[in-house]
Design a binder for these strands. Structure first.
Lengths: 315, 315
DNA sequence: AGAGGTTACGGGCAGCGTAAGGATC
DNA sequence: GATCCTTACGCTGCCCGTAACCTCT
């Protein structure tokens, strides 16, 4: 009688259409996956996966089996969820995190996760959201906290937190406005006008991301000189550059609470508005892996708590 | 993550309310079942079975888990059935057989079973139907061919064959009738009357079985002397005793085709009618064990083939 | 040549059976 | 004392990883 091992291998090979990726997903070597599947096929006396050049695809029998296999894995996860304590979740979870989250509540999340699920190891990979999205799709990540929403099929998403974006500058960076000599570029209404912001570089998230596009759209006006936007994939570097007065940055105030408190950085008052950054926890809607679902739920909790203190500061 | 091993152990312990019986069902030692369940509980971090004195019963968590476990086992069996070849069925099946079947088509069945399911071993236990029924209920037998129908819940039954019962005698056993000296006790209408049959012992199935009761009910008349009925649990012995002219026997002609052909035994023409013996294949409606279901279906085939030659001989 | 799957081989450990150890009637 | 489950222990065999091999582009 077949055991779950073989079914898991079969399911992921069939779904990812690759032994190699299935092996990564299962934290195994390619060889082990091959052996598991071979053993399953031997037991069933039927070939389930057609291995051709450029084609790893289920046979007709494999397609029939795939439905059942998915149900089986899902049912096992349900059983685990319905009767098991948090101790039951074990293994390694590959978590992809947007750097913004690193600077806000990731540490608290890791701490809480370890406390509640002591048998789960977390491998953290920090990257920009588009790459996290790819990793998720390729099955190289089990869970990701990234800029959402993705709106993809086969992916379960939960909203984590919303961060307003703000213009930030060093107190020692002068913003020469069109008006008098207040020295801060502040106009009559107490806000910094657009043309003052266009005189300095704007530092923000890298070119591949949504915020970059939004910033560009906001600042580029036909009648005004084009903005100079520095995209940077490292949030720490953006902060460093802002402290060094390279320019004004567009980031969520939540990530620089300390610098704001010590007045190393200040929010630039402006009428310009950018959409909030919405972060979501996303994981593949996999029939197994209750771990990803559980940690996703935990992340929602942690983000809500942290959001209360860090979310709507400023303005 | 739990494997099927543990779920199987849990399911059968919960259902049979006994580690010992679950072990028998799974062809394991009691110790192994205990270990499997302990491992499962450890993985889940929850106790599933309450081991009390005189009470092996699922905990609340166990009850929740039991539904899923049953679904899982059933689904696995379905998967096996939907994609696997006959080679896939393997293991040992404990088959209980009524002796009547032994004398008709059991040999053919075993042969066919071995040919179609080469990896299935069959342990045959011959006994009377009531005891087979017990064995089935206790989980000591996986499949039984017995006098049906049982009409029990949790048991799947298929009709196999119907055998008419007949009175049988040795040609050398005189049946003195009430009439003249034909010497065979045959009356004017060519049948042997009841009172002639009551002068000799009647040999048939043992006291605990349905046919015995039916024979007794048929022969016992207030106005006539009570019948002498010899119940015997060995069909071979019944035949032997009939050949030895101990009396007339009531058995299906199908089991003595050879003796009838050689005129070692003859059917007694009589107006008395007994209900047919209906044999069924019965197996527990277990969520696992597709083997029992497959062999049950095979038995229906074999019985149908054999029934054509042996079923409606006589009269 | 290199990417991807299979096969060969050795080692670690899961899980089995035997047997001894409670617990409860 | 008998029955039933648990625990201890040694051993077998499964299954994984390493590495060599095969095949196709």
């Amino acid at each position: 009688m077949p055991e779950f091992r073989g079914l898991e291998a079969f399911y992921w090979v069939a779904r990812l259409r690759s032994f190699r990726r299935a092996a990564e997903r299962l934290h195994l070597t390619q060889s082990a996956v091959s052996q598991r599947l071979a053993a399953l096929e031997a037991r069933l006396g039927a070939r389930l996966i057609e291995r051709g050049a450029r084609a790893v695809v289920p046979t007709p029998a494999g397609r029939r089996a795939l439905e059942r296999a998915e149900q089986l894995l899902r049912l096992r996860a349900e059983l685990l969820g319905s009767v098991a304590g948090p101790e039951a979740l074990s293994g390694t979870l590959r978590l992809g995190v947007s750097e913004t989250i690193v600077h806000t509540w990731l540490a608290r999340f890791v701490e809480r996760a370890h406390a509640r699920f002591p048998r789960v190891e977390i491998d953290i990979e920090v990257d920009v959201s588009p790459r996290l999205r790819q990793g998720l799709a390729a099955g190289e990540l089990d869970l990701a906290f990234l800029l959402g929403p993705l709106g993809e099929p086969r992916v379960l998403e939960r909203e984590l937190c919303r961060y307003p974006l703000a213009f930030v500058r060093s107190p020692r960076l002068p913003l020469a406005g069109g008006g008098d000599g207040v020295g801060d570029g502040v106009g009559e209404d107490g806000t910094v006008p657009l043309d003052a912001l266009l005189r300095v570089p704007v530092i923000t998230y890298p070119r591949t991301t949504a915020p970059y596009a939004q910033v560009e759209q906001l600042l580029r006006r036909p009648e005004l000189p084009p903005p100079r936007i520095f995209g940077n994939s490292s949030l720490s570097t953006i902060v460093r550059m802002t402290l060094d007065r390279i320019g004004v940055s567009v980031i969520p105030p939540a990530v620089i609470r300390r610098e704001l408190a010590y007045d190393h950085l200040r929010l630039v008052p402006t009428a310009l508005r950018l959409p909030d950054l919405v972060f979501t926890a996303a994981h593949a809607d996999a029939p197994d892996s209750p771990t990803a679902a559980a940690l996703s739920a935990l992340a929602v909790e942690v983000a809500a708590e942290s959001g209360a203190e860090g979310g709507d500061k400023g303005f």
